[in-house]
Design a protein around this nucleic acid. Structure first.
Lengths: 300, 300
DNA sequence: AAATTTTTGAAATTTAATTGACAGCCCGAT
DNA sequence: ATCGGGCTGTCAATTAAATTTCAAAAATTT
């Protein structure tokens, strides 16, 4: 638009904050976020209160508003009040959209809608007891833990592996190359846990893997879609996720959400367990330190 | 009636003023009229200012609000602010339990709440124009596309790779092992696109990679968190995702949501492009058919 | 019309908010 | 590893705001 600087005069404070967000410092961003979160009411109190709620110091608040071009907090506030007057007089219900500046039909809004719906539908049928049981299983380091996914869901398996590896020992990610699977299988028994990600289109290799593991007494935890992969029948525990989005394929958001919640709870369980010396993740961090910075040689 | 005092709690200040207008004194009526005239903005300034504008003294204002039952002007004002907040703020699923059978404090519900909040905050600041531009870039097969992630976000990079690979040619996933990066870099130029996933804690290797790529004129698309990785400065496009959840680390849900939407739109763009013979993904599917069923030999 | 009660605003007091100066801290660079 | 620059918070001084006090003015009653 013509005249970014000129139009600042007619730009709402909200827009100013959004546009200039990038050039703000950490504390200022923190503050800005709180301001935008419940705008404009959150900015109408005292500067002290605002600072306290956003966990920054009062001078930071004063400095921010000066950066925006106001002479001080009082002037900033009076502009805000003026906006309240203007805002309330034209009550558009723009708050039903996720992305305010986009039309309802924009794919971002449609996607967010679908995901929200998926989460609600999935969670309404989710048994928290089962969730807690699975959590207990995963946190029990007596069991070895193997993770495997399909073509698409491999990334989820990878994500789970990356996290579980840090919070507990004896975790394996079976690669998507099914040639190597028999090797792993031979070694599994009833003390093993196998986490499978299998959403449509269900893969035969995964089904066979599950069957064979089941015969060996391996406990199977399954992440699947609402229709249920054929593995459902033999899985010890199952999460059925709604995965439909306005797209040619399926969404991995809901499984990932459950996964993150699981990992979070597991970590909490294992974290408080009295350990001798280094916890597992501390050891991991130590190892990581050595593997950093290989680019330095190249760039220098 | 038993209602008067009790119902004052749920009555808006405006209603209170209107109902009790008759029992007020001259100066108080004068004040009240000014308040109602531009309600509630007119009540959000200082008591001095309010008094001055309605031509009464400050004690008169103080006395009026006490008459209404408030301990003083500040309390009165905070109630007024709360009204502004309620009026303007987003009513979407505020007190919406996600998992019906679980208590509010169950981690599943807390997680779903956080994620919902994250999505809303992220999307409210997301420029759809930028989203569309990025989409156009990704769908333009004249550019080569390279994807890279950090330790945790590697899975996201992998997810993106898996999908992009199907809908367009010339896609590469740079592994997390930064030793191999210089090799890729040497070959990049201004016709390249580099997608980087970098959330806290920002990794130095990634930053250096970005800087070096930038010097070569490579366009960088960055997925980062709300605070912004140092790469933000040199990125051609950036998605800032809110990633905080009740957990020791961060959520990948929002980046993945944006990612999925991007992929969906890209696919649509490329899908309708008139192609000669096989589209890219049809070719991919054909190749896959050969690689299936390696377990069959083992199980049979 | 005088006395009394009520209301009102000026001034003083108390309380809180705002700003400016300084020092520690974190981050990136050398 | 050390150094410098910018960011951030603590503290103190200043300023503004809110409340209380009190006396004058208005309204009401006798």
């Amino acid at each position: 638009m013509w005249g970014d600087k000129l139009s600042e005069g007619i730009m709402s404070i909200k827009e100013q904050l959004q546009n200039r967000f990038d050039e703000l410092t950490r504390a200022e961003k923190q503050l800005t976020q709180l301001l935008l979160q419940n705008y404009p009411a959150s900015g109408l109190g005292s500067i002290t209160d605002l600072a306290k709620r956003s966990r920054v110091s009062t001078p930071t608040v004063a400095r921010l508003v000066q950066k925006l071009g106001y002479t001080g907090f009082p002037q900033f506030q009076s502009v805000l009040r003026a906006e309240v007057g203007a805002e309330l007089s034209n009550p558009i219900d723009k708050y039903n959209k996720w992305a305010e500046h986009a039309p309802d039909e924009h794919i971002l809004n449609r996607f967010a809608d679908s995901v929200s719906k998926n989460v609600r539908q999935t969670f309404s049928r989710l048994q928290t007891e089962e969730f807690d049981e699975v959590c207990a299983l995963l946190a029990n380091t007596d069991h070895r833990l193997t993770i495997v996914g399909g073509r698409i869901s491999r990334s989820l398996a990878d994500y789970m592996f990356t996290h579980m590896q840090v919070i507990r020992p004896r975790v394996t990610h079976m690669t998507s190359n099914s040639n190597a699977w028999p090797h792993y299988l031979l070694d599994m028994n009833k003390d093993d846990i196998l986490v499978i990600f299998d959403v449509r289109r269900y893969e035969n290799d995964l089904r066979r893997l599950a069957e064979m593991a089941h015969e060996r007494g391996v406990k199977i935890i399954l992440f699947t879609d609402q229709w249920g992969s054929p593995i459902s029948k033999i899985a010890a525990h199952k999460f059925s996720c709604h995965i439909e989005v306005p797209s040619a394929w399926d969404s991995s958001i809901v499984p990932m959400l459950i996964l993150e919640a699981l990992i979070a709870k597991c970590k909490k369980r294992i974290g408080i367990k009295p350990g001798a010396g280094l916890t597992h993740w501390q050891a991991c961090l130590t190892v990581r330190a050595y593997s950093e910075s290989s680019l330095r040689a190249f760039s220098g």
